[in-house]
Design a protein around this nucleic acid. Structure first.
Lengths: 157, 157
DNA sequence: GCCTCTTTCTTGACTGCTTCAAGGGAGCGG
DNA sequence: CCGCTCCCTTGAAGCAGTCAAGAAAGAGGC
C-alpha cells in the first residue's frame, strides 16, 4: 500500500488536480494490480464510499492518458489496470482462470522492440502476452489439451 | 482468393459440416485479413447475400475454436480475424489509423516463447503486438508526440 | 480566509458489440 | 430418399463502456 503523499505527488507531477476520487482509484490500482474496472470500483469504494461508476471510468482514462497507470486487455477479458509503468514488462495469462502475472522482458529491450520488418512503421512499443495455464489450472486438467484460443472470461486475479 | 474446394476440405478436416455460410465467411477471412466482424458480415454478403448477422458470429466462433481462423483484438479495437494460423507470426498496429500488418517472429520461436520466469505456468503461446505509426499517420503528425496508449478506435485496414 | 474560475464528480440514460433463445431449415449417413 | 442432428434465421437481451447536463470541489489570486 503506497504512501498517500506519494500518490498525491504523482498526480501533481502529471499536472492533474488532486481529488479524493483520484487518490482512491490510484491507490486501489497500486494495491491490486490487474483488476478490472468493476473490481476497481469496489476497491475504490473501500477508500471513498460514495465514488460513482462514472468517476472511476473517468479517472482511469485520465490516469492512463497521463501514463500513471497502464491499461491491459488480454483476449476475451475486459480492461484491466496496473500501476507498474515505464519498465516494459510483460504478462503471463492463464487460459483457465484468467490470472495475470507480471514477467520481466524476456530477451532485452532491444530485440524485444524490433520487428524483423517494420514496413515503414515508427514502432514505439512491443506488447507481449504469454498464454498458458497456471499451476492450479494445469493440475485440474492434467491431460486435457488446452482450449485453442482463450476461453478466459473474467477470471479474478 | 482461395480455392473453394480447398476451403471445403479445410472444413471437413476440422470435422465441421460444409455449409454456404461457413464457406462464405471463411473465404471472406482469407481474402480480407484483419477485418472486424461488421466488415466481415459485409464481405460475406457479397458471397451469400442473405447471411445473417448472427450466423457470422457463430461461424467465426466455430472457426476460431477449431483453429481455422485466428482472432486478434488489439487494445481499443473490436475483434478482428485472420486465416493465417499456425505460424506464430505477430502484428504491427498503427496507433493512428488502426491498420494491422503481419510481421514474422522477431527473434525466433525459442526465445520468443520463453518468459524469463514462468512462475510455474505451462506456456504454449507468445503473442506480440508492436505499436507505432504507419508511414501515412507518421507523416500527418510529424512532430506530434504519439498519444500514450492506443487511441485506435475502429480503423479500417 | 474568501472569491472566482475551471475542472471534475454525480446522476441518469444510451450506444454498440456480442451473446442468448426458439423454431424452421439444411447437411450428411444410412 | 429418409431421418437425425446440427446449423441458420429472427428477434431480443446483456454488458462494458460512453455521452450529457448540472452540482460540487480544487487551485490560485485578492
Amino acid at each position: 500500500m503506497p504512501d498517500p503523499a506519494e500518490l498525491e505527488r504523482d498526480l501533481r507531477t502529471a499536472g492533474l488536480r488532486v481529488t479524493r476520487p483520484r487518490l482512491a482509484v490510484l491507490d486501489a490500482v497500486h494495491t491490486h494490480p490487474h483488476l478490472d474496472t468493476e473490481a476497481l470500483i469496489g476497491a475504490a469504494r473501500t477508500r471513498l464510499a460514495s465514488i460513482s461508476h462514472q468517476a472511476v471510468y473517468d479517472v482511469l482514462r485520465v490516469l492512463t492518458d497521463t501514463g500513471l497507470v497502464r491499461r491491459i486487455q488480454p483476449q476475451g477479458s475486459v480492461a484491466r489496470y496496473e500501476a507498474r509503468v515505464g519498465d516494459n514488462h510483460h504478462h503471463l495469462v492463464c487460459r483457465g482462470c484468467g490470472a495475470i502475472v507480471d514477467v520481466d522482458c524476456t530477451v532485452g529491450a532491444a530485440s524485444c522492440l524490433t520487428p524483423s520488418d517494420d514496413v515503414g512503421f515508427a514502432v514505439d512499443e512491443a506488447e507481449v502476452v504469454f498464454w498458458g495455464r497456471c499451476p492450479n489450472c494445469a493440475a485440474d486438467h492434467p491431460t486435457a489439451t488446452p482450449p485453442s484460443p482463450p476461453d478466459v472470461q473474467r477470471g479474478r486475479p
